[in-house]
């Protein structure tokens, strides 16, 4: 059983954060909210999303897992204005999701969760530096790097106590530094890793510009980014594998 009412805004943001990486996902329905974990087909990026029951106008379930085609579900939710409510109800018999938006009714066929790729076990990482940064600053860094290159290096200079971004193209390059003044917080430790901008741009799209993002970075290690959604009633973690730095 699953029956919930949620604002189109909240649901849309949550789904967007997942659909930048995968087309289909499993949604775990739990007593206290729902969660999604997905890894992109090339095993490079991961998203971990949880949306607590408090993010919903109403939320009832006795548990379970459903598989959805994200772009289809997003299309449905996109029919609503951002402040309208979306009512979701699972029909256990037909394995379809009933969706109702202010007089608009529809059903979405669900996907067998077993047909969706099992996400691999991920290692626990102990990353050397942690930066708390505004979403808008990540966006600025990614946009700047994208002007000149396909890759972006994220690093922390422990001595200078600053977070920096490097992007080197064939002819041009950019460098951006953010000091403790510009950051919300910095736990220094030497770190530098190179990432694919394709992935980071997609993740950046889903990060609200006013969000406070906690970023963990290491030496040639994956980066982790955590931020809240749904006014603190949900959170998203992204993890992105690094590129191999060529000499």
């Amino acid at each position: 059983m699953f029956k919930a009412i949620v604002s189109a805004d909240t649901l849309g943001d949550a789904l967007d954060s997942v659909s930048v990486l995968v087309d289909e996902c499993k949604i775990r329905l739990e007593d206290d909210g729902l969660s999604i974990r997905a890894v992109d087909p090339a095993n490079v990026g991961m998203v971990d999303l949880s949306l607590s029951a408090a993010a919903f106008e109403s939320y009832e379930t006795d548990g379970g897992v459903i598989g959805v085609n994200l772009s289809r579900l997003e299309e449905f939710v996109g029919m609503a204005d951002s402040d309208q409510l979306v009512e979701l109800e699972l029909d256990e018999e037909t394995r379809k999701l009933h969706i109702q938006i202010e007089g608009l009714e529809g059903t979405l066929a669900l996907i067998d969760p077993d047909s969706i790729r099992q996400e691999p076990d991920l290692p626990d990482l102990d990353l050397s530096a942690e930066v708390a940064i505004e979403g808008a600053d990540i966006d600025r860094a990614v946009t700047a790097a994208d002007m000149v290159s396909d890759h972006i290096a994220l690093g922390v200079d422990a001595d200078a106590e600053l977070f920096y971004v490097d992007a080197e193209g064939d002819t041009d390059d950019v460098h951006l530094e953010l000091t403790t003044e510009d950051l919300i917080a910095l736990t220094p430790g030497d770190a530098r890793s190179l990432f694919s901008l394709d992935y980071l741009k997609d993740m950046d799209k889903a990060i609200p510009s006013d969000a406070e993002v906690t970023m963990e970075v290491g030496e040639e290690f994956p980066v982790k980014m955590h931020f809240d959604i749904a006014e603190g009633n949900g959170n998203v973690t992204y993890m992105l594998a690094p590129r191999i730095q060529s000499d």
Partner: peptide, 10 residues
């Protein structure tokens, strides 16, 4: 000669 690491490999 891959240039992109993965998070995990099965």
């Amino acid at each position: 000669e891959r240039t992109q690491r993965t998070l995990a490999s099965t």
